[in-house]
């Protein structure tokens, strides 16, 4: 099922386009990496897909429903979001559980024991269970990043949109995070769109890769989607 797509999308800031004629498709059950050099508009591409930004030209589609016909739930973890909110007066548990309150039907309800358990499991799977009573501001950059992902996990979304989520994490944490994301797809049928610079570490996990490259003729960037046979092929062969 097609969850999100960009068709011939052109977008820019000011008068200068940074993405031209971009075409991508995100199908359910895929792990897709978005990669490219700094300033290649990777985050912009994600924001366009989520309809946070509106394209100059072209069409952006985001499915309103998931494969089961229910409302599509999207969890977005922006780039270094936790670093910008270091002084936020909140406990880790309170923050992770807030992911369960995104639907208006849950605004006035108390969390059920099952929902609380889901949040607890999300904290455990991201290795932040010991930090549950700490204040967000007291945590390190990597720990903050992990609690942001734990909140996304607690939401149990259909589509994860993650912008460099492993920033500040050590190699072991990154590896277990990629494995966790793959499990979310294989076991729970989730979809993951992730901006990353660590392609080599995601070996054997990716389904597809979107590379943002500089166009030779005008200097603008364009999108190329590379289908990975089975899973990820070595990065060198794709360039």
């Amino acid at each position: 099922m097609l969850l999100a797509s960009l068709q011939d999308v052109t977008f820019g800031y000011g008068d200068v386009p940074c993405l031209e004629k971009a075409n991508i498709e995100v199908h359910s059950g895929e792990l897709i990496a978005v990669t490219g050099p700094n300033g290649a508009s990777k985050s912009t591409l994600l924001k366009l897909a989520m309809q946070l930004l509106h394209p100059w030209e072209g069409k952006v589609t985001l499915s309103p429903t998931n494969t089961a016909g229910n409302k599509l739930v999207v969890a977005y973890v922006p780039q270094q979001i936790a670093a910008f909110n270091s002084g936020f007066p909140s406990q880790v548990t309170e923050f992770v559980r807030s992911g369960l309150h995104t639907q208006s039907s849950n605004w006035l309800r108390r969390l059920t024991p099952q929902a609380k358990q889901a949040a607890d499991e999300a904290m455990q799977s991201m290795g932040v269970w010991e930090l549950r009573n700490r204040r967000i501001g007291e945590l390190s950059g990597g720990q903050k990043q992990r609690i942001c992902i734990a909140r996304a996990l607690a939401m149990s979304p259909d589509l994860f949109i993650l912008d460099e989520p492993t920033t500040g994490m050590d190699k072991e944490s990154r590896k277990s995070f990629y494995t966790l994301m793959r499990e979310q797809i294989d076991r729970h049928g989730k979809t993951v769109l992730i901006v990353t610079h660590n392609l080599s570490e995601m070996n054997d996990m990716l389904d597809r890769m979107i590379t943002l490259e500089r166009r030779e003729e005008g200097g603008w960037k364009c999108c190329t989607t590379t289908l990975c046979s089975g899973h990820f092929a070595p990065a060198e062969s794709l360039h």
């Binding site: 946070l52 739930v73 969890a75 973890v77 807030s98 949109i161």
Partner: peptide, 14 residues
């Protein structure tokens, strides 16, 4: 609470 932390992720989550 969610909006105060980050408006964009709040908007994305509906």
């Amino acid at each position: 609470y969610i909006i105060s932390f980050d408006e964009e992720s709040a908007r994305t989550s509906g």
